[in-house]
Every structure is written in structure tokens, then in C-alpha cells.
């Protein structure tokens, strides 16, 4: 009796993280892109990763969904260890959505087909159901009237919002954003960030690599700072900006916040 109560108590105090990364390392030839990274993400948490270019930010999130295969380390998603077999990778990626810097829409498919392709082909959703869901998602990213267009007919900001809808169509438990606004005209950055902010407010767990510091301050639960393949600091936005612990982070902030 006592034991079970204890067990319940410990389970409540340490809820299982959505994502748990331990000892992740990745080398490209002689270059150490990631050095022994530990990271965990709670369900519904919004983590923003920033740092200088070449610090390993993109490599880290690309390793999380195994677009790069790490040299060592473990990744657990919802308590399940992700294996190396092709089937494991496919199942992992179906639960983790990804949005890329260059949008990477399928140019030969309409907006609607871009969104429905994966649910229809991979989850065997029928056409009507997939399209119904796609239109809902398009409404969410404010593009309901663009469903028949092709990617080349859309602006960068619109394409990126379609890419977000496409990833959401698989009902991911975690969304990864790899510098989603870096390839956009300044005017279009906002519309994409607004969609992302809303997504986070609705409880989506997400990891965002970005240089948008204003967005980081407003939308993050925690901000991680990476340099030379390591996470030097993970802090709440307040501590991160106003009370940075690391000298390297201080220098980084001084450099980017000055102008």
C-alpha cells in the first residue's frame, strides 16, 4: 500500500519527458558538430535554440529526427528508445514534424496535395478525410483560399505556412523548426512567426532553431545557447536575456542585441 503510493508520488513529481536526448555526438570528418549533448523536453514545452552559425543547432534537430544519423547517443521519444532500423526511423519521423529553412514543398503538387500526400499515402487516410483535414489546417495558417495553387505561385511566407500545415497533417507530437524564417523577406517573417506562436500557445511541443530574438523572448519556455557543438546554457527567457550566466553567451547577446 505504502509502496504504491510512493510510486505514484514519484511519477507525479517527475513526469516523463516527451523527448530525452542523452550523450548525442556527431562528427563530420574532423569537425565535431555535436559533442555529448544531453537535452530533454517536457510535453508542450517550447524550446528555442540559438547560437552562432556552425554551433551545431541545425545538426542537433536534424539528429533528433535522424535526417543526420548521430555517431553516438540515445534518443527517446515518449519513453521509447529510437532504434537504427529503417522502420524505427520512419515511425519516429511520422511523430515528429519538421519545417525547413527552404520550405521544401513538392513543386509538382498543389498546396492541397502537398498537405494530403503524407496522410493519404502513409496513414491510408481516404481522400475526402485528408482534404477535410488539410483545409482545416490551411484555415489555421490563414491560407484557406490558396489550396488549389502550386508552391511556385506563393510567396515565401505563404510557402512556409503551407510547409507548417503539411507537417501538422501527420499529427506530430513534436515539431522541429530549422531556421524557418531565415530565407524570408523581412515583411513575411512576422506571418510565419505568428503561426508558430499560436501553435505553441495551443500546446504543441516544439524545438525552434532561430535568430529571431524577439520571438525567443516572447514565445519560448526555455532558450538554449549552443556554441561549438555544446549546449552552454539552457535558461528561461528572463534569465537568458537579463541575467546570462555564461561569458560566451554574454558576448553573443552583446553582439546581436546591439543593433
Amino acid at each position: 500500500m505504502n509502496e504504491t503510493t510512493e510510486q505514484i508520488v514519484t511519477e507525479q513529481t517527475t513526469p516523463q519527458p516527451l523527448l530525452n536526448v542523452t550523450g548525442l555526438s556527431k562528427h563530420f570528418c574532423d569537425f565535431t558538430a555535436l559533442h555529448n549533448i544531453d537535452l530533454s523536453l517536457a510535453d508542450g514545452e517550447r524550446l528555442i535554440i540559438c547560437g552562432p552559425s556552425g554551433s551545431g543547432k541545425s545538426t542537433l534537430i536534424r539528429c533528433i529526427n535522424q535526417l543526420e544519423s548521430p555517431d553516438s547517443g540515445q534518443i527517446e521519444l515518449q519513453g521509447q528508445l529510437v532504434g537504427k532500423a529503417p522502420r524505427d526511423l520512419v515511425m519516429l519521423r511520422r511523430r515528429v514534424g519538421m519545417v525547413f529553412q527552404q520550405f521544401n514543398l513538392f513543386p509538382h503538387l498543389s498546396v492541397l496535395d502537398n498537405i494530403t500526400a503524407a496522410p493519404r499515402k502513409l496513414l491510408n487516410l481516404d481522400k475526402a478525410a485528408a482534404e477535410h483535414k488539410a483545409l482545416e489546417l490551411l484555415a489555421r495558417v490563414q491560407l484557406i483560399d490558396q489550396s488549389a495553387k502550386f508552391p511556385a505561385q506563393l510567396s515565401g511566407g505563404q510557402q512556409q505556412r503551407v510547409a507548417i500545415a503539411r507537417a501538422l497533417a501527420m499529427d506530430p507530437v513534436l515539431m522541429l523548426f530549422d531556421e524557418p524564417t531565415s530565407a524570408l523577406d523581412p515583411e513575411m517573417i512576422r506571418e510565419v512567426l505568428d503561426v508558430m506562436r499560436e501553435l505553441g500557445e495551443q500546446g504543441m511541443s516544439m524545438i525552434v532553431v532561430t535568430h529571431e530574438m524577439q520571438f525567443a523572448r516572447q514565445a519560448a519556455d526555455r532558450i538554449a545557447f549552443m556554441d561549438q557543438g555544446q549546449i552552454l546554457a539552457i535558461e528561461t527567457p528572463e534569465d537568458f536575456f537579463d541575467n546570462p550566466s555564461q561569458p560566451r553567451l554574454k558576448r553573443f547577446l552583446d553582439n546581436i542585441l546591439q543593433h
Partner: peptide, 16 residues
């Protein structure tokens, strides 16, 4: 490689 990565990230097996 962009499209290839997008498809893989959605959960398409490589051959599909």
C-alpha cells in the same frame, strides 16, 4: 535534397 528530406521527415520510407 530539400524535397527528399521533406519527404523523409514526413515519414516516407526511402524507397517510397
Amino acid at each position: 535534397r530539400g524535397q527528399r528530406e521533406a519527404a523523409l521527415a514526413l515519414g516516407f520510407p526511402v524507397w517510397r
